[in-house]
Each structure stands twice: as C-alpha cells, then as structure tokens.
C-alpha cells in the first residue's frame, strides 16, 4: 500500500458481516475453539479453520478459504501458517 493510499484506507461504511470467496487467502486472528476445531470470528461472521495447531487460539494465521455461505456469513478454511500472535 502506498503512503498516499494509507490516508484513504478504511474510508467507507463497513458492514458487521464481511464475506470472502473460496480461494481467498486471508490473515486472521484465531478467536476461539469449537468441537476440536478452531474458529475465527471476523466481525459477526465466522470462519471455521481446519488443520490448525492445537495452540492456535490468540495467534494470527493465514487461512485459505474453502467454502463460504454469504447468507449465513459463515465459512470454512484450511490453516496455512502461523504469522503472529495477539497484540498482548
């Protein structure tokens, strides 16, 4: 992102349920666990992440989106790699 673009990034009214397309690779913070799998809540949308490490909660990971239900704002994805952790 250019320095100029940084001034205009986010200059919009963003909804509470972002959607993604299968094939997208996104970086997310893993926010919790459910039924042995980890999930990332993005706004009020939810992404279930397969093949993630057991200690993935509160880490930032790259996830490849496999499926996405735009009506329910839910999807599944596959863990790629861990790229960071919580700010604290």
């Amino acid at each position: 992102m250019s320095r100029f673009d940084k001034f205009f990034a986010g200059l919009s009214f963003r909804g509470s349920t972002p959607d993604y397309d299968p094939g997208d690779v996104i970086e997310v913070m893993v926010t919790g666990e459910e039924g042995g799998e980890v999930v990332a809540r993005i706004g009020d949308s939810t992404l279930r992440i397969e093949d993630a490490p057991a200690d993935a909660v509160n880490t930032r990971v790259l996830v490849a989106i496999d499926t996405w239900d735009e009506a329910g704002h839910r999807g599944t994805g596959t863990y790629r790699e861990t790229v960071g952790k919580s700010a604290f």
Binding site: M1, A9, L11, S12, F13, R14, Y20, I42, G43
Partner: peptide
Amino acid sequence: VTGFGREYIPDRT
C-alpha cells in the same frame, strides 16, 4: 454504530 472507518484484520495487516 455505522461501521464508518471499520477495518478488519484480513482487510489490511
């Protein structure tokens, strides 16, 4: 309330 300026982690790290 409106989402003005809201950005998610996947939008821009």
